[in-house]
Amino acid sequence: MGVLVVADNDNAHLRDATHKTVTAALKISGDVDVLVLGKGAKAVADAAAKIAGVRKVLLAESDALGHGIAEAQADAVLALAGAYDAILVPATSGGKNFAPRVAAKLDVAPISEIVEVVSADTFVRPIYAGNALETIQSSDAKKVITVRPTAFPAAAEGGSASVETVGGADAGKTRFVSEEMVKSDRPELAAAKIVVSGGRAMGSAEEFQRVIEPLADKLGAAVGASRAAVDAGYAPNDYQVGQTGKVVAPQLYVAIGISGAIQHLAGMKDSKVIVAINKDADAPIFQVADFGLVADYKSAVPELMDALSAAGK
């Protein structure tokens, strides 16, 4: 038996969330296999085979899997589920989309977004926007779990597992129509070392781009946003940090013109160092910020750019 980890990938690249999920899996069992779902994803499987501690890699391919269709992803996992005690899926939007289907078909209670493995059947997960941590013990024989990647260190490279091809799966009554992906050369938000986020204060998409993006580029940072900024169309949906967006835990998180609502804090309060720039000294974001600058971003951000240049950045 052992644990099956389903890889996070985009058919071409293995994402770091996989390495982190492997770390969680190794706390449950020494026998960890990785399943890569995709299309034309051999390079992803080869990359997964290099993760230290992985026993073998399984590669399932089909058109539907290449498009991340949940019905197909769940079926591909279910075909293999009999051989495992636990199935671990990174808690990305793609992972959260199909993992509960696997659980329903296996008649087990899914366990969402764990942040700690206490033992093979006991886990810790945040609830109520991270304002409480629940320790739960599962009585199901098989476990289906999503793993919050930011809560676990990445498993190292250095493995040399074999890669085996397994059956693909189709999309059933769902058809892929199109996708519109945000193109960016910046680091991936969920895995970046530095994140610069902008909020409603930006006032427009142009201003968001004028203020936030150059600062992010100077810092080699990913760009994030509050829900208010996304709702208003200043930034794409994929940038939303929070309870119901992306959870990030970078070395440095810079919040500019963000008030610090519970839902936003849920997505960034585990960052190592938090900086807040806000003109309202009473904004709740200052309650979690290591360094707060009470100022209008319109003058503070240019000054910050200059100070970074002066410091050789």
């Binding site: 209670a109 366990i111 006991t122 945040p126 609830i127 991270g130 304002n131 409480a132 941590l133 629940e134 320790t135 739960i136 013990q137 599962s138 009585s139 309060k269 938090i274 000294a281 200052f286 309650q287 979690v288 910020a289 290591d290 360094f291 707060g292 600058l293 009470v294």
Partner: peptide, 17 residues
């Protein structure tokens, strides 16, 4: 699922201005 306990997450203390 049996809830063993529900605890408060580690508090982040406010830093400096």
């Amino acid at each position: 699922l049996k809830v063993i306990k529900v605890t408060e997450p580690a508090k982040r203390s406010a830093g400096i201005k």
